[in-house]
Design a protein around this nucleic acid. Structure first.
Lengths: 310, 310
DNA sequence: CCTCGTCTGTGCATCCGCGCACAGACTATG
DNA sequence: CATAGTCTGTGCGCGGATGCACAGACGAGG
């Protein structure tokens, strides 16, 4: 068995160092400049770029006499490398702060957080004067690390044994449109009629969280969204303004008030679930428990709001 | 000059490879397991973990006879490494898709996107039947790479010469509360009265986008938010529900309709700006231009909505 | 108790990636 | 035209990181 060489790539996945080199070359535009910043030789940088291109099977740079310039595919990769760089920068920044005083960090999906929980969180703050709540509203695109927050609410239980997960509730989704939109179009009688319509939905490429690809479940998957937005709030706004149809949780539509009509009421029946997860380490922290209880109790008190008929 | 060694760390920043090794050890819990997955020897993995700890000056793992377990500081680092891992995974996933047919990717801040532009985007889609719009609603926490989208709307012009930026408009912000909240509390006559109140705002740690730290500008910086949320929509919901006070763009408050009263109307006068940036490469793409025009025209047509008095 | 399988930790010889040095090409400045 | 300062690309010799082998410790299972 021979040793692993640069050109073999790694056994599993790629070498993050090469991405780091790539990022620096893309930033500075030259091998030499990147080499200076990395504390390495330009020859080394060139070799690692070549290795990365080889392992991806793609040309990332246009070799030019005066430097390197990104190809189209390189530009796409740079967006990702940028994101990694941003994370890496946090290592040094956050290294000192050990955080935590009276703060609890909670992360929830947009629908549950903004349209259900936000108006109901007052009691918790009133009853606990020392408590500061840091609340991340996450969109489907950022499958945020569960370690980033003390408590997370997501669509599926946390994998791995380091977390305790419990189901909060199931909830129903339905297809909605605005009266103005429905008046302008012929009546919709069955799923087949849907194909002629304009839809909004999540951005397909970015759907990490499994279970948010609603439209695929409709009309045999023949529907796709021409207006794709990462935010539920934007989708709601577009539907209410009468631009298009879209799938919404029933409780979100109710919270939004007037201006929404369920299309094909009974036929389109989607159900998803909210799960609450808390890290094993924090499970017995009283503050964290307090917040968990509030979430649980609020869902309980809401009765059948989540499973209501549209 | 001697060569750079593992123990020296890098000249600038840390070695991403070491983070990759760290991530794998944290995941598997053993050096040997990580080594197998990485296609390396357990001795190598152990040395690199030691090097990372040395360069950070922190102990990341508890050495145990049966494996490695994370320390408290290691757990914090893992959250970051997880995020990097997630990005790295996209490299291989996205490597194939070269995207782009008739799609344009747009990213906007939540206020501008969800509360202004979303209801006004219908004409663009109607006039361009082939166009698919991928629309990222970004929150303040994710200072998303501008390369991630074809067009971005942010609070400041893009730095660097690779982008063309233009100012869309200034906009005004004011302090709002719900009638129910204001009725329950003594009248607010000047900024000093604000100190007794409960506020919502962005998560302080995560404010990357400069210019979203509204509360710091009020009452001499003596105010801080006990309810911190990364999403404007959630803050709006909390304010409307009468839980607290908060700063909102005036046009957002107007779009939200009833249930909001401006506090200290004239005195609290905050102004920010929206900038639209487009990559140099895409500037002459007709589809991209079409979307840019729509944004420009919509803002223009809105008249003084953005600078309206509360 | 013994054996097997797993884990970490540590010398040691080896080899591969590294920095170095130099060549060739282009630009800017005078 | 000449010179100085960039840049990339390519051999070459070297040394440090790597894989290997082995020791020691622990748990499971017969």
């Amino acid at each position: 068995m021979h040793r692993r060489g640069v050109w073999d790539g790694m056994a599993h996945g790629l070498d993050w160092s090469n991405l780091q080199y790539f990022h620096e070359v893309a930033r500075t535009g030259t091998l030499s400049g990147a080499a200076r910043r990395l504390g390495a030789d330009h020859a080394t940088v060139g070799r690692r770029i070549a290795a990365l291109e080889h392992s991806l099977g793609r040309k990332l740079f246009e070799r030019h006499q005066r430097g390197y310039s990104l190809t189209r595919q390189g530009r796409r990769l740079l967006a990702i490398a940028d994101a990694m760089e941003r994370e890496a920068a946090r290592v040094e920044a956050h290294a000192g702060s050990d955080a935590v005083g009276g703060t609890v960090r909670l992360s929830t999906l947009e629908g549950f957080g903004n349209f259900f929980m936000a108006p109901r969180i007052g009691g918790l703050l009133a009853a606990n004067p020392g408590l500061v709540l840091e609340w991340l509203t996450i969109q489907q695109l950022v499958a945020l690390s569960r370690r980033e927050a003390d408590i997370t609410v997501t669509l599926s239980p946390a994998s791995g044994a380091r977390f305790r997960s419990e189901k909060l509730t199931d909830y129903r989704l339905a297809l909605y449109g605005a009266p103005a939109y429905l008046d302008r179009h012929p009546p919709i009688r069955d799923e087949a009629d849907l194909r002629a319509h304009l839809f909004t939905g999540y951005i397909e490429d970015l759907v990490f969280t499994r279970g948010l690809d609603y439209l695929g479940d409709l009309a045999g998957g023949a529907i796709s969204a021409r207006l794709q937005n990462s935010s539920l709030g934007a989708q709601l706004a577009a539907i209410r303004a009468g631009l298009c149809l879209g799938v919404l949780p029933v409780f979100v539509a109710q919270a939004a008030g007037e201006g929404l009509v369920a299309v094909l009421g009974g036929e389109v029946a989607l159900v998803r679930s909210y799960w609450m997860s808390v890290s094993e380490d924090d499970a017995d922290n009283p503050r964290v428990q307090r917040v968990c209880e509030t979430l649980r109790d609020s869902v309980m008190a809401a009765g059948d709001l989540f499973m209501a008929e549209p």
